[in-house]
Amino acid sequence: MTVASQVKKTIATLKGNQATLRLYALQTREEETKSVYHEALDATGEIISDLEGRMQTLEYCEPQYKGN
């Protein structure tokens, strides 16, 4: 696995986590729990955008691995 594809895998995992968090934020009945899930969603979103920025640099540096 190249570095780019490893980073891609991590992004995918984090996006999956976001989806699950969003589901629980919707279906939980406790307001406090809801707000914690929303905070977690925001924090995960920041990390994902960081990684996506890095991803672009990596793809620019190693165009031969683009899409892997």
């Binding site: 995992t13 986590n17 890095r54």
Partner: peptide, 29 residues
């Protein structure tokens, strides 16, 4: 067991990030 799985996924992502930090030579990255 979805919530336990979610936590485990966060753990694995955290481990990935630590690994990337160790492997890269780019200071900013």
């Amino acid at each position: 067991k979805v919530k336990e799985l979610l936590y485990a996924n966060f753990e694995s992502s955290q481990a990935d990030l630590t690994m990337f930090a160790l492997e890269t030579n780019n200071k900013a990255a």
